[in-house]
């Protein structure tokens, strides 16, 4: 999903809006999420990553906008003059918790033995959104681990389909090794045309996907429980060096 651009003549104006009752000035081509973060107003996100294109799939960043009934995703909605945004309400909290519960129920997350335990964005989100149990029945569907790459490993049990790996590989590295195969609950991240990762011709083994993956799905080989700490700061760096191209 690409960002919704404001219509009209392409001279960027400054607009004023309210977020959680605070008056804020922002450029009209900025998203609610960007403006909120500039102003230290926290909005939870999972698929969003600064430096990559907007995907808008996880829906954790939903906010209420006065005058609309449906919550909107803050990562893909641009600010507008006079907009009144609420980032936190009982309803939003409930939505976010439900989304997280569904993510946990969909695949197999066993935090205590996971390489990302203690450094996992999904785990942190669960804590931040006060998700203390899962009301849905776990699917318990078996997922594969592909250990064929020399340096890395993908464990589909932990994948949340955020596509950060796909986007960083395509947009930053330029290799486009990753793709999503299937629909709905059948979605699966694949390398090349579903070859084992280790046999991929396009993969340059740069490891960017591993570093941006928010969970224990992509990991360095040889890591034991809790040992996989990710370092995604290179991303902002790289995009800046390239003049945001």
């Amino acid at each position: 999903m690409s960002r919704v651009q404001p219509p009209g003549p392409h001279k960027i104006r400054v607009v004023t809006l309210q977020i959680d009752g605070r008056d804020i000035g922002a450029r009209e081509d900025e998203t609610i999420l960007e403006v909120a973060r500039e102003n230290d107003i926290p909005i939870p996100t999972l698929c969003y990553l600064e430096g990559l294109s907007t995907w808008g799939a996880c829906r954790l960043c939903v906010v209420e906008i006065e005058g609309t009934t449906r919550p909107q995703s803050a990562c893909s909605t641009c600010v507008a003059e006079g907009m009144k945004v609420i980032t936190n309400s009982e309803r939003l909290e409930r939505y976010r918790r439900t989304i997280l519960e569904l993510l946990f129920a969909e695949r197999n997350h066993v935090c205590s033995v996971c390489v990302s335990n203690g450094h996992c964005e999904l785990q942190q989100l669960a804590t931040a959104c006060k998700m203390d149990h899962v009301r849905f029945k776990y699917r318990n569907a078996p997922y594969q681990v592909d250990p064929s790459h020399d340096l890395f490993r993908v464990d589909h049990n932990r994948c949340v389909l955020c596509t950060r790996c796909l986007r960083v590989c395509d947009e930053i590295e330029g290799a486009h090794t990753w793709d999503v195969m299937g629909r709905g609950v059948e979605c699966l991240l694949i390398t090349d045309l579903k070859q084992p990762w280790g046999e991929s011709q396009s993969c340059t083994s740069c490891g960017k996907c591993v570093q941006v993956c928010p969970t224990g799905a992509l990991t360095k080989k040889g890591t034991a429980a809790g040992e996989m700490e990710k370092h995604g700061s290179f991303l902002v760096y790289l995009t800046e060096m390239r003049g945001n191209r």
């Binding site: 033995v113 681990v145 809790g226």
Partner: peptide, 11 residues
């Protein structure tokens, strides 16, 4: 079965 061996101590 099917799990990477470095996970075994914690598992």
């Amino acid at each position: 079965e099917g799990r990477p061996f470095p996970e075994m101590p914690a598992l």
